[in-house]
Nucleic acid binder design. Structure first.
Lengths: 222, 222
DNA sequence: GTCTATAATTAGATAGAC
DNA sequence: GTCTATCTAATTATAGAC
């Protein structure tokens, strides 16, 4: 639990509050540790990318040590896959819910609201973009896994649910629309500190999120 | 010049061809080595990010060794700054030329052609995006330097040369337009192998580049 | 200018005490 | 389940021969 040389955000002493409650079973204590490690891993991988994120730093962020991290996740690759599973799994869940909610709207209104909600979700979960870009330019095992396990499903759904056509494009343009949409929506949140320094606008503020949602919805579905 | 354990692309034996020509001065030989190292560094930093790219691998890609790399660039940070200077410097140069070329066009046509040429340049130089995203989410010294030295100038130019207003937006929306445009234009090229596997379309092909240019120009300036 | 050898750190993975 | 200690390998930076 010693702080590694590489600096990372200081954390509130989670364990301090846990001590005030009656002791839980060792099993659920383990589950809680496992969860803290996973949350810390998502944060670290999103911040620095796979190679640059260290398991020592992740363990430190999770208020534990590297030995215990290895107990819960035998290898760094296992930990990355668990982190990606959580990130893309919750994204999938939200998008599927959303498509059901919007089932009765007319195609154009549905496409616009889908995009707006996609912006809101991306602002709250900027790690999605970092995982995708970090694993986008080299076709290693992790990249292939990410594409085959999660992105393919999303790409197909966008076509089948008519988001592409509702926005006024042919299905043959789907690849261009797909990446243009994700880039237009997510880049600003993925480089939020950069944006703040460059423009003075902090894109994480609620007003900025809504402004971005409106702008991108107008871009894609005028 | 020994190959590092971490694999990278194999290179043609540049030195072999150099041997067939009359010997050049040691000064210009050094310049050539310096240049090969810089090109290799841009490639490696764009592929893997600052931390994950190793100076040994960069030296190997440049057909030399880590000792000589350190002779030309005393520290990894120096090398990164030289690589970023080259990348953003040539981008600045092209964009400034372009604005002069388009000086006599009407505002809307100018904005559209500016975007199209921005797409073409981004396809040929995908490293721009990786540098920006890699240094976007943490406000370290390199990020601040990048924003203050290069991005600020581009952001101001886009407003002053009327690209924002010509596209039909208020200057107050400039931050949103700026990042939405860059994301919509560049993501697809930055994750080209990902796009190829996901959609079957290789965005690096000339036809795909033109299709993307047309689509994004229509998005931003309908 | 070039390259080999090496020092000082840090990395992921493992062993074992409690 | 938790944590300390340690192994092996990779990292940046440096020293010095040629």
């Amino acid at each position: 639990m010693t702080k590694p040389k590489v600096k990372s955000k200081s954390k509130a002493q989670i364990k301090a509050t846990a001590k005030t409650r009656p002791a839980k079973s060792t099993a659920s204590r383990g589950e809680a540790t496992r969860e803290r490690i996973l949350v810390a891993a998502i944060e670290a991988f999103a911040e620095k990318g796979y190679e640059a994120a260290s398991t020592r730093d992740i363990a430190y962020r999770a208020e534990t040590d590297q030995g215990l991290l290895t107990y819960h996740y035998p290898s760094k690759d296992d930990l990355w896959r668990a982190a990606a599973d959580r990130t893309f799994g919750s994204f999938d869940k939200r998008m599927d819910e959303l498509l059901i909610e919007l089932d009765h709207a007319d195609p154009k209104a549905r496409a616009r609201e889908f995009i707006r909600e996609f912006v809101r979700f991306s602002a709250a979960n900027p790690e999605f973009f970092r995982f995708m870009v970090d694993e986008g330019n080299l076709l290693d095992d992790r990249t292939k896994w990410l594409v085959d396990t999660y992105l393919k499903k999303r790409f197909i759904t966008m076509k089948e649910r008519g988001i592409i056509r509702a926005a006024g494009y042919e299905d043959s343009q789907a690849p261009h629309v797909f990446y243009a949409l994700i880039g237009a929506v997510q880049l600003i949140f993925a480089v939020a500190p950069n944006c703040k320094r460059l423009t003075g606008l902090d894109p994480r503020k609620p007003k900025a999120i809504e402004a971005h949602a409106e702008l991108v919805a107008n871009l894609i579905v005028p």
